[in-house]
Computed example of a mutant assay.
Amino acid sequence: MKRRTLVGGITAAAAAAVAPSTAAPRRVGMSDVDRLRHRFAEIIASDHRHGGQLGIEHQAAALADEALNLQNAGSATQRVRSSLYACAASFRSSAMWAAIDGRRYDDARRHMREAQALAEMSGDQAIKFRIWSHAGTMYRHMGRPADALAANDVARGLHITRSDPMFASLGLARQAAILGTAQDRTGTRRAFDQAHDAMYRADPDQYRPVWMLAFYDEAELHSLALSAYLSLGDYPTAEFHAHRCLSALRPYMVRSRAIATTRLAHAQLAQGEADAATATAMKIPADAATQHPRVSRMLQEFGAALRATAPGSPTVQTWTEHVAAWRTKA
């Protein structure tokens, strides 16, 4: 109810911004931009807690429209107008990511096209990187590694990756995950090593946008390596990266913890450790297990693999009862 009220209020405010008025045009300034940036930080925080939710996608899209409506709400400097386009692109990129995380790929592509156009009008290199990097991740999840590499290469080719090694590191880490999907073992290892080196060359005091500061760190680097080595079928290495990821995750990274824990369970099960894998999977909170599309799908795959590995065992019975309890709590 609160989310519907919020989105409805945003829509009403946007409509009011473009309604005819006899009053003198207002001056749109950086205070308006700062307000939108604060809302963007709230979207980022909500994504890390919940991830993939339709409500986050719709809220981000509505805020992108609000940022665009301000372009027509009054006079503004070129700096303010560029910043408003960057805000709109940022919100669209978050809507795109929520759709990717929720496996709503048609919606994600629609948000991507709008975000790319807005980012071009803004001239903001960081948001261009985010959109193209997300596109690479989207195609990786869709099982299209060639398209994923092409999109990620656009992100990695931007000037910002040369001026800030942290952006170079993220591009390389995502390249490693894509190369894992493509079964390129040597390329995966090389890209991960380069991503690690770039991260530790980065100046910790250099300015970076809130979306980058909120998620990219050593934990995310190991999360992407975990994904890559799972795809390659190198389960001991995947398990190593899973433990490193989970030990480094910041407390608010609830969605990321659920995903890494699920992947750890898969890595353990693939090594024949059915009991340990089941105990790991049972640590995932009920809301993530039942409401996050990516986690739910991976847990369904885990259950199928467990039944194939240990049919009729007490471990399978324990897992079946636990899944039923999750559904009761949801």
Rank of each mutant, 00 (worst) to 15 (best):
G143R: 04
D234I: 08
R162M: 08
S94Y: 11
W132M: 09
A305T: 14
F192E: 09
P25W: 01
Q317I: 04
H48A: 09
D34C: 00
T161G: 05
A228Q: 08
R208N: 01
L36W: 09
Q175G: 05
A325L: 13
E218T: 13
D203V: 03
R185K: 12
R244A: 15
A304C: 00
A115N: 07
E120S: 09
A98F: 07
Y207T: 05
N72D: 14
M112L: 14
I127Y: 07
A173I: 02
R156H: 07
D217T: 03
I131H: 00
R81V: 13
A119E: 01
Q206F: 05
G272W: 04
P293N: 09
A267S: 15
L213V: 14
L54P: 03
A41Q: 11
G8M: 05
D203A: 06
A308P: 01
L63W: 12
I131A: 13
V316H: 06
R3A: 14
H58S: 13
A270P: 00
L68C: 10
P285G: 07
T262N: 12
K329H: 12
G272M: 08
A45W: 02
T261W: 09
Q194K: 10
I127S: 07
P236I: 09
A277D: 10
Q78E: 15
Q194H: 11
E220A: 07
H196S: 11
F167M: 07
A281I: 04
M253K: 12
T280S: 10
H50M: 07
V33I: 11
